[in-house]
Amino acid sequence: MKPVPQQRDEELEHHPETSAAAAPPPPPHPPKRASGGGDWERKLAHGLSFLRRRITGEYEVDDFGYDEDLTDQVLMSMLRPMYEKYFRVEVKGIENIPESGGALVVANHSGVLPLDGLMLQVAVHDNHPAQRHLRLLAADLVFVLPVINELARKAGHTLACSEDAQLLLERGEVVGVMPEGFKGIGKPFADRYKLQRFGRGGFVSTALRAGAPIVPCSIVGAEEIYPMVGNAKTLARLLGIPYFPVTPTFPLLGPLGAVPLPTKWTIQFGEPIPTDGHPPEAADDPMLMFNLTDQVRETIQHTLYKLLVQRRSVFF
């Protein structure tokens, strides 16, 4: 009658004093408590083993300082509520990221703070059938700031330079890059969803050298989280940062103004653009590079417009 052995001694204790009246209540309770308890115990064991690994240092980091254990267990769990509940991210076309081998995900960049990169990372991690990890390329500013640089390295981000990108692609990782850089993330609200210049197209030559496909990615929703109406350039120069955002709420309400607007996000991965058909010297061909850069840029821009037309409202 009792399927769970742990209940037995409790039952034995109760048996002498309860003869008939207390007998019926236990049957509905044990299965419920057993399943909850088992789950809880499993979680506890899991958490304890994670803690033990952290305390003894028995985990591995790669050459870039990527700590997969910490990212999976802690960092992703911290971002997930924001991803699921706050921005309610909808992901489309995740199958365009290959199951294995290197790939370069190229996305638009916006939103004053690089939340779009973090959400993109969660999107790939949680939705891809092969549970691939996105390795983002970040601006050098990230690696100068204390605490931020430590977390970024542990989350698998590395400096946006061709050496690092190529090394990651050659190792068969999915690399995420936002070629607009500071021009994209710090653009005024009026320019939302207008793609900025894609740097010098260095990402294309890196992908060509590694023979990795380019996956264009369009992120809708991130451009409205902080409506940046002004840029305090003098203050930015004083602080040594590329821009100092002024939003209707930010310096005015202090830290409260730094809460992003709860917009509804859509992340669409486009058809991969193969690069392995080109000869090795193609990476040094500026015409081919500009053509490919334009092709990627146009794809992202058109997808953005398409998604914007389909969108019912900014917040729903």
Binding site: D140, L159, E163, L167
Partner: peptide, 12 residues
């Protein structure tokens, strides 16, 4: 330096 690539090769 923070602005160096993550992995140095002999020629970096």
């Amino acid at each position: 330096a923070p602005r160096d690539p993550a992995v140095f090769s002999e020629t970096t």
